[in-house]
Nucleic acid binder design. Structure first.
Lengths: 303, 303
DNA sequence: CCGACGCGTTCATTTTTTTGCAACGCTGCA
DNA sequence: TGCAGCGTTGCAAAAAAATGAACGCGTCGG
């Protein structure tokens, strides 16, 4: 990445906000605090408003500062898009798609789709951040991700959904588990075994809680974790049962000793898996392409 | 307006594009051609693409250049909006609304609405550019206007309409014209008098042409002009009749010796007057407010 | 209560970036 | 063919940004 003179000031201010102090930010930018301070002061004078509240321990953005930060981050993202568009014009179809997704998708879905996408578009590379529910939306807001994928997200004013796919719950268990042979699997069957549940930070737990609340059955929870990988590895070694939403369960991957079966209770609702972008934002071309691929893959899998 | 360090480069490139040559642009920017040239070269190197084709007589933007120009103009407009939003935060509700409109609205509608709007929002001032049909859309595209108002505009992909009001045609004539007394006015009555018609560059002419094409009546056109003011002043002094769309006709202004009457032919179609903005653009707050005012005024007048 | 710490800030100075000036080479046109 | 207008280049001057060493001011720990 080149020096990028034009958005220097934007990077400066953003750094101050992210580090919470001029000194830390200056260190991160490899300049002295005084230089950074002057840039900030000039800017504040130019805008006629303070962008940060000065505290003894550091700086916190004012309302005006928040506005400026949003603008700055948008500028940066937008300039990257411009750069990509121009490169595209030159015939080299290169670029980066950055995605924030909650954990459920990390395993089978993403690697497969990305692999397939890169076969068609070899010049495009990916930045995938797996993070917790709320951080996905925040990453979109901060222009750190082009696309966000979350399960059961609550609608919000500055995020616009591009695709919603209802997701049923799957039971995850060892490949040689007694239940693995059944043609139809009901929740009540699962409850005869110890359970390994995703914790509240993961989507899908909500669905389970709702079911347990309305049901008279009492589950025997032996493990609770915020890591699906953990849960999967756990159930492989014993007769416990875990749960995961459809796309995350990776229906066909039996080779690692774990299998997933759809649960047929209709008492168990479904929640949508949502592909979203920041409202009003112009996405870079590669991101739009990839969104289309996701759309195809997810809508195909939904049936 | 302050020095605006950050978008200097954007202004530079925009100036080159507008003036068509580095030397002219440099003159307009009060710098030397060499300085401007170096800035351009640095930028081109940074982006890895030429932004202008070098001709012996000057510079013309390449495809990449067009992309950059759009970005640059958008940046400038966006930064102005940011500045306005921050000022708004400080309590001073000030700002500028820039509008491009075709001629029909220049007379009664705009002055009245703006006056009323400024009574409620004294800090907001206006930049109204009256221009020809196509320039309105172009002004939106170049981020030179926040809002555009055109009669009978053809839909286009990068413009999004915010409001459409069907407009009938009115006949404009001297206040003491024989026709001015009639309760109901039909086209056939008007054709008994000499006509002063708006030319093809003005909206409304199309409606007339369509009517004449289908009608057996032959009009006696004594004056054709691209200026409504011209037409109005002309009919005041004799028995000629001119035409204008509803909002432009300023129904109640008899004091200047001219009156306007709605025409009751149903053979004469209606076309929409459209309030529009550039698609996907974030409008400054004052512009949004004013758009709302226009909406109220035009929808009220439409009934 | 006090000294050390981390903070933002200021000032004179140095470094980097931008601009100016004069000249060059090129192209189209009379 | 010469001239006028163009983009471009090298080198010096000017402007902008960064430095490094202070200063003042709250906060925290003893």
């Amino acid at each position: 990445m080149s020096a990028l003179q034009y958005l220097r000031i934007f990077n400066y201010i953003d750094a101050i906000a992210r580090h919470g102090s001029i000194r830390k930010a200056a260190e991160g930018l490899f300049i002295t605090p005084s230089a950074l301070d002057r840039r900030l002061q000039d800017l504040e004078e130019d805008l006629g408003a303070e962008l940060f509240e000065r505290h003894a321990r550091g700086m916190r953005p004012t309302a005006a500062g928040e506005l400026f930060l949003k603008h700055a981050r948008e500028q940066r993202a937008d300039f990257e898009r411009l750069r990509g568009d121009i490169a595209h014009l030159r015939g080299l179809h290169r670029g980066t798609v950055s995605i924030a997704a909650s954990q459920a998708l990390a395993f089978s879905l993403f690697p497969d789709i990305i692999t397939r996408f890169r076969q068609k578009n070899p010049g495009i590379d990916f930045k995938v951040r797996i993070c917790d529910h709320n951080s996905v939306v925040q990453a979109l807001r901060d222009f750190e991700a082009d696309l966000g994928i979350v399960y059961n997200v609550q609608p919000s004013a500055d995020v616009s959904p591009m695709l919603e796919v209802e997701q049923r719950l799957c039971a995850v268990m060892a490949a040689d588990h007694p239940l693995a042979q059944q043609a139809q699997l009901r929740m009540r069957d699962c409850l005869r075994y110890p359970l390994a549940l995703p914790d509240a930070s993961l989507g899908g737990r909500m669905l389970l809680d709702a079911f347990f609340a309305r049901s008279s059955l009492s589950p025997q929870v032996v493990l609770e974790s915020n890591s699906f990988e953990m849960l999967r590895n756990f159930v492989r070694g014993n007769d416990a049962v875990s749960f995961q939403i459809q796309v995350g369960a990776a229906l066909a991957r039996v080779q690692d000793g774990v299998t997933a079966l759809q649960i047929d209770d209709r008492g168990l609702g479904t929640r949508p898996l949502t592909l979203a972008q920041l409202k009003g934002r112009h996405l870079p071309l590669p991101a739009m392409r990839f969104a289309q691929s996701l759309r195809d893959a997810l809508e195909g899998a939904g049936e």
